[in-house]
Design a protein around this nucleic acid. Structure first.
Length: 509
RNA sequence: GGUAACGUGACCGAGCGGCUAGGUAGAGGUCUGCAAAACCUCCUACGGCGGUUCGAAUCCGCCCGUUACCUCCA
């Protein structure tokens, strides 16, 4: 039974979909105005594992991850200007061109990290109509008001109706009142400081603006997720994910918008939040400017790290910590992660050897279940089965990937013993070995999404083969020469002896 | 200032009141032409001070330290 920690209730709850076997999952996606950084990768990886696991369990998951391409304000004094528009202006590009460029790069990075693409990847700019419709619903219920072509959500009135703004993040509105900063643009239009924008009026110089019942403008920062999750998953769906930093105000506002719509409710039943990545003990963020982009990371061009690390090393690194714990990035930690990842991959290769070995092994007698049920220490057979079941137990416990990994390493150790000790292999049934191997593979590859990342360069291996070829030739060992030739031929490579030396080319046959 | 977390061995990280993960690094051993891998053994820690308890890394209080959110952010 899968349990997940629900931020709404602050405890682990058994997960049961609203409409089995369907599961609706929404994850707050990227703002596509520059390259994603390492911290941005944690959420997608965590929720990719969740999606994969739910599918493994037999659920039919609809995974929605939005692309935010409108309406996010810059925080550095450029009042009200759209982040995308700012980048676009700087680069003399169409805003949509900027969005497209970074969207494509984001998808590439996610694919490299082994994250399955979402089933639906809605863009905020493509859902202006839905967002306007949602605002009208909220206004229709009297929980939003217009001021100078902008529309604000009326938080005090919302609370007066018994709805509870702050329930997700544990905020108390009175405290927010006292502490809200007043220097933000448009504050004077608000009736109350904690009211938030549903629609912002935009002057003609804004590159991204749309017509609305309240004039030209753009949607508020929190609106798209409410509008799009409802459109594609329904007013009540199963899981909403995002980073801890989005809990307040973003998700709080989302819930308020959902509650204030004509289809009231919290939206998702489960709200899940992944913790932050820190570098040298500090959160990595765009605004702090201390971020390492994914591409810099893969290429090793960041000054903060001594070398390049592969996408799978990063994925393993994240999975080694529980998603609700903070994790700190360092060279040492990454090197340890990379080695651990490779060990797991070697385990995958070991299985190819172990399975035939196990089938060929002659066993004295297969222990019957009644014999294994005797008291005392569990039989080797039972031990193997237990080891293979452990990773799933830990995944069920709020997606505890570090413990699942630990269990995989325990299982791998057993596999190694079986592979090198015939006597040990003879003590377990071929069936148990097959099942344990299947479990290992399923958890590593299908659920954790760790795939083999070939490190060897085909080009260099080819050069090596050519070296042997030349050597054989100079020794006039023509049987060996022919052997190398034909072996390469089956790989689609032909060797060409030219006057200037040995070369290779793709076979044109 | 308000609100949440967190502080675990050389490093990264699990842990949710007794059975005290796992990875990496280090030491010794088995194996081995060399090397690697693998396996075995070792290194056994919980910020400080009190309290609760038969028993605390785990619960409570205080203190110290770190981080996050309160403003766009995964």
């Amino acid at each position: 039974m899968l349990t997940l920690y629900n931020t709404l209730s602050r405890k682990k709850e058994s997960f049961e979909p609203l409409h089995p076997p369907l599961v609706g999952l929404y994850l707050c996606g990227p703002t596509v105005y520059n390259d994603a950084h390492l911290g941005n990768a944690r959420g997608p990886i965590v929720f990719d594992v969740l999606t994969r696991y739910l599918r493994y369990l037999g659920y039919q998951v609809r995974y929605v991850r939005n692309i935010t391409d409108v309406g996010h304000l810059v925080g550095d004094g450029d009042e009200g200007e759209d982040k995308l528009a700012k980048t676009a202006r700087a680069q003399k590009l169409e805003p949509m061109q900027v969005a497209q460029h970074y969207t494509v790069r984001y998808r590439q990075a996610m694919a490299a990290l082994g994250c399955l693409p979402p089933d639906i990847e809605p863009q905020a700019s493509g859902h202006i109509t839905e967002q306007i419709g949602l605002i009208e619903e909220i206004m229709g219920r009297g929980l939003a008001y217009e001021a100078n072509g902008s529309v604000y959500f009326d938080v005090p009135k919302y609370n007066a109706e018994g709805l509870n703004y702050g329930r997700l993040s544990g905020r108390v509105v009175e405290e927010l009142l006292a502490n809200t900063r007043a220097e933000l643009a448009g504050q004077e239009e608000k009736r109350s400081p904690q009211d938030f924008a549903l629609w912002k009026n935009a002057a003609p110089e804004h590159l991204m603006r749309w017509p609305s019942p309240w004039g030209m403008g753009f949607p508020g920062w929190h609106l798209e997720c409410s509008a799009m999750s409802r459109k594609y998953l329904g007013a009540a769906f199963d899981i909403h994910g995002g980073g801890l930093d989005l809990m307040f105000p973003h998700h709080e506002c989302e819930i308020a918008q959902n509650e204030a719509s004509n289809t009231p409710g919290t939206g998702a039943r489960f709200w899940l939040h992944n913790n932050m990545l820190t570098v040298n003990g500090q959160k990595m963020s765009k605004s702090l400017g201390n971020f390492i982009t994914l591409n810099e990371f893969f290429q090793g061009s960041s000054a903060a790290l001594s070398q390049a690390y592969s996408p799978m090393a990063l994925r393993f690194f994240f999975l080694q910590a529980h998603y609700r714990s903070p994790i700190d990035l360092s060279d040492d930690a990454l090197q340890a992660a990379r080695k651990g990842y490779r060990k797991l991959m070697n385990g995958l290769r070991l299985l190819d050897k172990l399975l035939p070995l196990s089938t060929e092994t002659e066993r004295a007698e297969v222990p019957t279940p009644s014999e294994t049920a005797k008291p005392g220490p569990p039989s080797p057979e039972q031990q193997l089965r237990n080891l293979a079941a452990k990773p799933f137990e830990f995944l069920n416990d709020d997606l505890n990937t570090p413990r699942a990994l630990a269990a995989l390493f325990d299982l791998l150790k057993r596999f190694n013993t079986l592979a090198t000790t015939p006597a040990a292999l003879a003590e377990v049934s071929a069936e148990a070995v097959t099942e344990a191997a299947a479990a290992y593979r399923a958890v590593v590859v299908d659920i954790l999404g760790l795939r083999d990342e070939p490190r060897a360069s085909a080009e260099e291996l080819l050069t090596l083969a050519l070296g042997f070829y030349q050597e054989a030739k100079s020794e006039k060992a023509y049987d060996k020469v022919d052997q190398i030739r034909s072996a390469l031929k089956t790989q689609g490579i032909v060797i060409k002896d030219t006057k200037t030396g040995v070369e290779w080319a793709y076979s044109e046959e």
